[in-house]
Computed example of a mutant assay.
Amino acid sequence: MRHRRPLTAVELAEIYDREPIETVLRLLQEIHRLRATIIRADQVRRMIGKGGSAYVSDCVWECFERELDAEPCLTDPPTTRQQKFSEAMGRQLQAWRMNGRRR
């Protein structure tokens, strides 16, 4: 499934302005948390990537590792919806293989 284009901070604020309810606020807080993890990943990338040093400060690296270790998406079991989607994709791939189609 293709992702939609990323939303900007302004667009996220506009969403809350249109629907200022607790559920939207909770979702926006989760988006904010995930964006903070992406910012930390970019900080690590700049430290070890092109033009950066091969050294990442212990403080930055430890914080990044803690953030990743706390991510539910890395440890949660699949939801019923995810499991059904995965099974359907598996059946589709198996059908493609049986019919000689590779993907």
Rank of each mutant, 00 (worst) to 15 (best):
R102H: 05
E62Y: 00
L74T: 04
R81Y: 11
I39W: 15
F64A: 06
I38Q: 07
R102M: 02
E19G: 01
R91D: 14
A70M: 07
E62G: 00
R46C: 12
R33F: 10
C63G: 15
A13P: 04
R81C: 10
C59D: 09
L34D: 10
S86F: 04
E71S: 11
P72E: 04
G51Q: 06
M1C: 07
R102W: 08
H3L: 07
D69E: 09
R46K: 14
D76W: 01
V60M: 11
A36N: 03
E71P: 02
W96R: 06
R102T: 14
K84L: 09
R101G: 08
W96I: 04
M89L: 14
Y55R: 14
R4K: 14
R66D: 03
R101E: 12
T8E: 04
L74H: 07
D17Y: 14
R35Q: 12
L68Q: 13
Q83E: 02
C59Q: 01
V60T: 02
K84A: 13
P6L: 14
R103A: 08
L74Q: 07
R66I: 01
I39Y: 15
F64L: 04
I21H: 12
V10Q: 11
Y16S: 07
P77H: 02
C63I: 13
I48C: 04
L28T: 01
W96V: 00
R103Q: 10
A54D: 10
Q43H: 14
D58M: 05
R18C: 15
T80G: 04
S53H: 10
R66H: 12
E67P: 05
Q43Y: 02
A41F: 06
R26E: 14
H3R: 11
V56A: 00
D42E: 15
I15M: 00
M1Q: 07
M47R: 06
F64S: 01
R91K: 15
T8S: 11
A36R: 07
E22G: 05
L34Q: 11
E87S: 06
R40S: 05
G49M: 00
E67F: 02
R18D: 12
G52R: 01
R33K: 10
R4F: 09
Q92Y: 01
F85T: 15
T37N: 05
L7K: 05
A13I: 00
R102E: 15
R4M: 09
L12Q: 09
R46T: 15
Q83L: 09
Q94E: 13
R18V: 10
L34E: 13
A88M: 08
C63Y: 15
E62C: 05
C63V: 15
Q29I: 10
C73F: 12
P6H: 02
V56T: 03
L12K: 03
A9I: 14
D58L: 03
V10K: 08
L7H: 12
V44N: 06
P72R: 05
I15G: 04
